[in-house]
Design a binder for these strands. Sequence first.
DNA 1: TTCTAATCTAATGAC
DNA 2: GTCATTAGATTAGT
Lengths: 171, 171
Amino acid sequence: MAESTVSCIRQVDARPVFTIDRILGLDLNRPELRNISVNLYRPWAESEPPQQRRHTINGGHDLKTKIKEDEFKYKQHFSESYRRTLNWYIGRRPRTAFSSSQIELLESVFLVNSYPGIDIREELAQRLLLDEDRIQIWFQNRRAKLKRSHRESQFLMVKKTIANLKDFEEE
Amino acid sequence: MAESTVSCIRQVDARPVFTIDRILGLDLNRPELRNISVNLYRPWAESEPPQQRRHTINGGHDLKTKIKEDEFKYKQHFSESYRRTLNWYIGRRPRTAFSSSQIELLESVFLVNSYPGIDIREELAQRLLLDEDRIQIWFQNRRAKLKRSHRESQFLMVKKTIANLKDFEEE
DNA sequence: TTCTAATCTAATGAC
DNA sequence: GTCATTAGATTAGT
């Protein structure tokens, strides 16, 4: 179980009272405090990775930067398999391509209810042969898109109004 | 902000064809569901809402209690999604973007104590020039993140074990 | 390039 | 407090 991880933290936790100063005084660079790693759950990664499947908790930034550098370095030799490995390394789910019929159903549901509960999402997932997770993400992104379009139209309205005011002044 | 809410509702007004039967339960078009005003305390909202305050603090009731009561009263007329829309109309707190140095301190404190008491939270708030509220929320979300990663790694372990068992059987 | 699936996390409300 | 879910901001694939 995660018992070991938990107890590790509890151990540290168990110390009596901390002031910020004391915490700041701690040498966080000590090896036992660094490289606290976390196994990420990547269900779409089918086989065992060639490398260790570990990301440091807040190492995402450095990791990404490093990967970007490598990407630039090897850009001309960028093969599909290398990209796949990179993708796995970063740990991103492969992009799902919805079919037009799937989109059609999702859009028609969105028109009526842009916040489907778990029951509706599950039903949709079953009908469309997708994970419920994909459905949820789709609705999240769809709502963001709607909101964006509203913002943009509002902006246009304001711009128009201002333009009209200017015309009025010039008359 | 009001613009998006209004057009959200207008969309429903258009009454498109329903594809999933369960959605039919929602009828946001009923007039009695509209124009329900509940003014909440949103100190970060720049201007006062145009309506009168319907809830005032009086007697032994605090604002939250009173709002809860009214919410219960109207619950039968209140669809979940309408309530949500209403809340967003009233306004969320703008998302706080922590600086990397703020995150750094927060993380270093989290490493040794993931449940800081009010005294430490206040001290952190003072140092980081943030509200104590933000600190508390940050720790809540950080704990949730840690827990999630634990769950995920456990799941992965189970998957691995099962895979190993299969390999063993096939030998 | 644009559009959008995916990710991360601050904020919220239910319990 | 946890937990699920949201919005907002971003990253990255087609």
